[in-house]
């Protein structure tokens, strides 16, 4: 670990919020990107982001300086992503209106993206495909979805994903294979 990072960690442990922010701003865009890809919602991604760094802040005193700080952050990120999924499921009944709003938001976001396309027919096709891919992703287990997202959309190496999830590379390969198989089953009419 770089000396300046150790120094920032030590200051942050003493309650120096500025040092903590300087420390995590090196990695926070990656964290937000992982979260945004995983939940496909900017608000949810920000929630995950905040929870990750609050956990990091609270856990800093227990962090062993022997291991890489970035590895630790990404482990926490994947843990929060996985638990976020189940929390959302648990609280899905809380507000139907809210869910409707969120769906509306997502639809408009999708509309915004497909509006760049020229043909209205193409727009409809793309919107439908996008919806189907999203539905297919939600058929996966949280871990499969996360592994697929990290690999397919973000290009992390298998060993990096294994390190984040604290599992073997073999497990990652197996889960990735299963994820691809299940997604292909869901989307066979498109590919």
């Amino acid at each position: 670990m770089a000396p300046h990072e150790i120094e920032l960690i030590q200051k942050a442990r003493g309650g120096d919020v500025g040092a903590f922010e300087a420390l995590v701003y090196q990695y926070d865009k990656q964290v937000l990107t992982i979260a945004a890809r995983y939940v496909n919602s900017s608000d949810d991604a920000k929630d995950i982001y905040q929870e990750v760094f609050l956990r990091v802040y609270k856990g800093l005193k227990k962090f062993q300086l022997r291991s890489e700080f970035s590895t630790w952050i990404f482990r926490i990120t994947t843990n929060v992503c996985l638990s976020y999924h189940s929390r959302r499921k648990r609280h899905a009944h809380v507000s139907l209106d809210q869910e409707q709003d969120e769906n509306d938001g997502e639809t408009s976001h999708r509309d915004e993206i497909v509006s760049e396309e020229h043909s209205p027919h193409r727009q409809t096709e793309n919107a439908e495909l996008s919806l189907r891919v999203e539905e297919a992703m939600n058929v996966l287990s949280p871990q499969q979805k996360l592994i697929f997202t990290l690999k397919h959309y973000q290009g992390y190496k298998l060993n990096e994903i294994a390190s984040m999830l604290e599992c073997s590379e073999g497990t990652v390969k197996k889960q990735l294979f299963t994820a691809v198989r299940r997604l292909r089953n869901q989307l066979k009419e498109f590919a």
Partner: peptide, 29 residues
Amino acid sequence: FNDVVSNQPAVEVTDKLLNEAREELHTAL
């Protein structure tokens, strides 16, 4: 299959979104 799923639109992590996340984190901290 890869082509199909690769075209999936994603939430873009813009500087604005990152700054919002940082501000909210700052308040939470």
